[in-house]
Design a binder for these strands. Sequence first.
DNA 1: CTTATCTTGGACCGGCCGTTCCAAGATAAG
DNA 2: CTTATCTTGGAACGGCCGGTCCAAGATAAG
Lengths: 199, 199
Amino acid sequence: MPDVKHFEPDAVLDQVVRLFWERGAEVTGIAEIVRATGLSRSSLYATFGGKERLQAAALRRYLERQSRPVFDALAADQRGLPAVDGFFERLVAARCTGKHARWGCLVTNAHTGAAREVPEIREVLDAHHGALRAAMRAALRSARELGQTRPGLDLDACSENLALLAYGVNLRSRAGAEPAELLAGVRAVLDGFAHTEER
Amino acid sequence: MPDVKHFEPDAVLDQVVRLFWERGAEVTGIAEIVRATGLSRSSLYATFGGKERLQAAALRRYLERQSRPVFDALAADQRGLPAVDGFFERLVAARCTGKHARWGCLVTNAHTGAAREVPEIREVLDAHHGALRAAMRAALRSARELGQTRPGLDLDACSENLALLAYGVNLRSRAGAEPAELLAGVRAVLDGFAHTEER
DNA sequence: CTTATCTTGGACCGGCCGTTCCAAGATAAG
DNA sequence: CTTATCTTGGAACGGCCGGTCCAAGATAAG
């Protein structure tokens, strides 16, 4: 009997992700979301709840649609260190060029905002970190099995290191860092994970 | 003939730094600054200009009073890799415990905000990055002169790497990361810079 | 076609935003 | 003590904030 929604929530959420990602969630007002999506405030609030819930939903979506595929590809890539190197090469390229240039990473950006203390949002930040670190660990394990790594390499510590490094890249890219600098910074650590003799 | 200021601008700026650092510049209103400092809006605007100028001044002050002394100590510390290790140990401790726990770094936090595009503010972000990287480079040069580093280490790339890593630590600390995880992530890279045989 | 139910547009809420302005107050030179 | 100059308190500005509300509209079951 009831009426149905006159829009696709998924498509709307994608537009919200774009707004929050490029401009920042904190400085993007409800009015701007209404304007960009064409929705009315009523539909927005009925579908997503308030702004905090909307931001949490946007973060979850970003994680699943933007981050997860890349993380999964990294975890599945069995080339070892070249897989990690390729990940960072594509990361730097995506952060510094193309249509998302200088946007940074939505989840990385959320770390500094006031919303980081909201449990529903903190969960996404931690899930993102866990997924990134796990993907790094899988790639490093492949590297070890291929005999690419120096003896005694602590996979947990190294994957945490690379995850933290990715945040640094994301952050600095948003402030205009040079791709060459970022890449050099990345490769310095991969050299250290490899056999000294080989490089 | 004229009247003089009835307050100390330096002391006020310190209070502003504290507010922007803990809560975030974007969500700290002028009213809150007026309340915390006891100044009137008139004095605030006459002394510092608008909010953007105030944020730039706060960032410059943070860099000089908080970051620079630590960077200088790192650059002057001639112990080599232990100096770098000590820097990160103190960094993680400061970010996760004590009165500034979970505040992150004011400059790091500013990377994600809308103000990052303001030239006066971008300059501080770049100056901070340059100073951090230079300090890392000096410490690594000492390490090399002490024979602590593996052959062929690229000091520029490695110092950039450590600087990016510091941003990662600052960022994740603000979202509640565990000190042990952060430290493990740091040490993984230092191991890679050293002679493989020694560790 | 009626009816029950959900959706939609958009007016409206109190409150805060950063900023401006001016009269009153404080200062120190003459 | 007068006077010129700067500072100060605080009212006021238009505008945007996130959120609520309700009448009008759309839908599909009966």
